[in-house]
Simulated assay, not measured.
Amino acid sequence: MAATTIPRPVLVLDLDNTLLHTIPAVHLAPGEAYLLRRPPPTQPGQQQQMFFDMAATHGYLTKLRPFVRTFLREAGAMYDLRICTMGTRAYAHHMARLLDPDGALFSPSRIVAREDLKEGDRKGLDDVVPGGDVRAVVILDDTVEVWEKHLDNLVPVRPYDYFAGRWRRGKSFAQMRMDEEAEGGLAKALDLLRRAHEMFLDQGAGGDLREVLRRLRKKPELRVPRRC
């Protein structure tokens, strides 16, 4: 009798304010314009973290979240990664190339953008894994409301706001010329995802990541903080 295989779990990732922060150059706040003149230096052996696209109408800047490349590499060893964003398809594919220059993690078929969503103001797992088993899916996003039909699958992450933008109160990381700690939001999320992966495999065939996440949410040390 053939052994029953356990499906490889899927991790659905948001882009903006989860893995990175993008802003039009015209929306830079006072104290942030220095980024256009003098980008932060890249340390020897360190991959680029700040990107400029001045080909767009007004140009925009993208800052990758600290720890994101390590997060993607280690999460990708456990989960099949997908992107689901409210951004346009062109934007989503461009951001995927910044995060995954070699294309090892995010092929075009693994990217779901605004044009692909059945409900324009909501995200759904039917858009990301059509016909797939939602018991084997976990979602990482800084916005809870857009996943109202799949809250049991959701791991909320603290939003990453590097730039002040038009809505932020108080000084931004860019204005203070500092950044989120490397052991910040994504590192905490990765700890939870490791535990969830182990527990899901321990359940064997028929396991349910939603039940795993319910159990993990009861552990204070593994809770991922939500938006303040």
Rank of each mutant, 00 (worst) to 15 (best):
M78P: 04
T70Y: 10
M50L: 15
R169Q: 10
D133S: 12
C228D: 12
G207T: 05
A189L: 04
E180S: 09
D102Q: 14
D179N: 13
V26L: 12
K123Y: 10
A113W: 06
I23Y: 07
E183Q: 13
A164Q: 08
L81N: 07
L222V: 04
L61A: 06
Y162M: 03
E198M: 04
K63E: 09
L72E: 09
A96E: 08
D100G: 08
K63T: 00
R8N: 00
R210F: 07
V26E: 13
L192A: 07
G59L: 05
Y34R: 00
V10C: 12
W147D: 04
L117F: 08
R114Y: 14
G131S: 13
L186E: 05
G185K: 00
L11D: 04
V129P: 01
D127S: 06
T22Q: 14
L117Q: 09
E180L: 08
T18C: 13
G45W: 11
M54E: 11
R37I: 01
G132D: 06
G76L: 09
F51H: 15
H27S: 14
H21Q: 06
G59H: 09
E180G: 10
P41E: 15
A104S: 15
M95I: 13
P130G: 10
P101D: 13
L190Y: 09
L15H: 04
I23R: 04
V129R: 01
G184F: 14
V12T: 10
L216E: 09
R89L: 09
M86Y: 06
D100K: 01
C84Q: 05
T88R: 04
P30K: 02
L222N: 03
M54W: 11
A182N: 11
M78L: 15
F67C: 03
V68T: 11
K63S: 03
A205S: 15
I6T: 07
A90C: 05
A96G: 09
F51G: 12
T57Y: 04
G132L: 05
L190K: 01
A113P: 09
L61M: 11
L151K: 09
T42N: 13
V224D: 01
E32G: 05
E119I: 12
R177W: 06
L20P: 00
D116Y: 12
A205R: 08
L99Y: 02
M176H: 03
D102G: 15
L19M: 02
K171R: 12
D179C: 08
Y60V: 00
M1H: 11
Q47T: 13
L20A: 06
L81M: 08
L61C: 05
F173M: 03
G170Q: 00
L11Y: 06
L28P: 10
I111K: 02
L192R: 13
H58F: 14
R194T: 10
L193P: 01
A29Q: 05
L193K: 00
F71A: 07
R223N: 06
A56W: 08
L105M: 15
M176K: 11
D102H: 12
A25S: 15
M199T: 02
L20C: 06
P9Y: 03
R177N: 12
